[in-house]
Nucleic acid binder design. Structure first.
Ligand SMILES: [Mn+2]
Ligand SMILES: [Mn+2]
Ligand SMILES: [Mn+2]
Ligand SMILES: [Mn+2]
Lengths: 218, 218
DNA sequence: AATATTTTTTAGTCTTACCTAATACTATAT
DNA sequence: ATATAGTATTAGGTAAGACTAAAAAATATT
């Protein structure tokens, strides 16, 4: 059994892990708004519990047990987010903080019954896939808006940044999951885009383009 | 804002408080399966935060702020219990432990929306009243079965002990909230009772009679 | 009133999880 | 090859929340 703090570290390491490259101490510290020395300590603890492999001065990587644990937490987090939006009238920008707390509640039956109650959803309110009971999920084939060229079209399938500010910005411009968009122009000098949404043309910065996932349509 | 541990102490003190009498350190320690020395320390902390009045060697009592806090936690605990039974197919003996965790999730909107989602229930699966948004609730006029005399009748409205073991015992004999019972006989030498339930006659110990609440019918 | 028992507090440790400051290691640039 | 910058670890603290053992206060008993 892991503490809440251990679970939060595991989740962060999992999110930072790309392929086989080790995750660095500073990356974790930055993401968690904590200090590198605190991270070092926790990495030793996680390694001691066989949840992570930790090579001093090199970095860390979750073990299989660690990955399984991360998937369980992510499953809980995302199912609770669906619950909040579908059953309790929350908007997609309000659910993250509460799910951060609910994801640590321990009960397998609770989460499996919740899954059933929600009709076994496969994506959360931000377009992220929900692992099933066994920890499996299909990676959605989506692409960052910033990778597209003039004339490309698609539907928004997810967001990377799930902060209140970003989601409220999207709401303000009537852009959300499922919105159809077309790349009208791309400013090379600042990597910004002009996109056509259902209602209007919208000028979006590189930062925003990086945080939107689309599935392209031909 | 209180820590989870502080909240658990507040809830315990509230449950032990009868009238104006101070709650003793040992009572709290017993109820929480902790040591008296740990309780003393926490009482100082709670007093420092103005959640309890603490008189060394005499005992403690929640302040009004403490009582309000207790009612909020109890409201959350009981609403989650209703949710688990009504929406997620849990039985009344399974919900307590999970509600012990869920009661600490912080979000006023969450709990008010949950209340609405459940149709503003006034009692939880064990017959205990649920405080409303303002912290008010009607005390149910109920009496312990052990206080009744031969010939009295009533309906079960609540249980005091909410342990798995006790609730499963009741289930086994088809006794639950709303069950009609009649006192057939009372053994003075061991304070046990023979009661008539919907299905059969049942011999119950003093301990069980103490843990059942009834509303009598004429 | 004096003694014994029970209750409660204090003193001293431990673990988790954080911090700052100092040190050590790695990578880069001269 | 050495100095330097950047990254990571160690050393030493703090606070919450638990514990055991010892001391003190409140009750109960003779
Ligand atoms: Mn979290
Ligand atoms: Mn999400
Ligand atoms: Mn609790
Ligand atoms: Mn209950």
């Amino acid at each position: 059994m892991q503490t809440v703090s251990e679970e939060n570290y595991i989740k962060t390491i999992h999110h930072l892990q790309k392929g086989e490259v080790l995750v660095s101490t500073n990356e974790i510290a930055d993401k968690m708004n904590t200090k590198a020395s605190s991270v070092t300590e926790m990495l030793k603890r996680l390694a001691g519990k066989n949840l992570a492999d930790y090579i001093p001065y090199k970095g860390t990587k979750l073990t299989q047990t660690g990955v399984d644990c991360a998937n369980k937490i992510i499953r809980k987090h995302r199912l609770w987010e669906v619950f909040l939006v579908e059953k309790l009238n929350f908007t997609w920008d309000e659910v993250h903080e509460i799910a951060e707390q609910l994801e640590h509640v321990q009960s397998t039956k609770l989460i499996d019954e919740l899954d059933k109650h929600l009709g076994f959803p496969r994506i959360d309110p931000h377009g992220d896939p929900i692992p099933d009971k066994a920890g499996n999920y299909q990676e959605v084939t989506q692409i960052q808006l910033s990778k597209l060229k003039k004339g490309d079209r698609g539907k928004i399938t997810g967001v990377i940044d799930t902060s209140k500010e970003f989601l409220k910005y999207l709401d303000k411009h009537n852009v959300g999951l499922g919105s159809a968009v077309e790349i009208m122009d791309r400013e090379e000098f600042d990597q910004s885009f002009i996109i056509k949404t259902e209602l209007k043309a919208l000028h979006i910065s590189q930062h925003i383009a990086n945080n939107l996932y689309l599935k392209t349509t031909i």
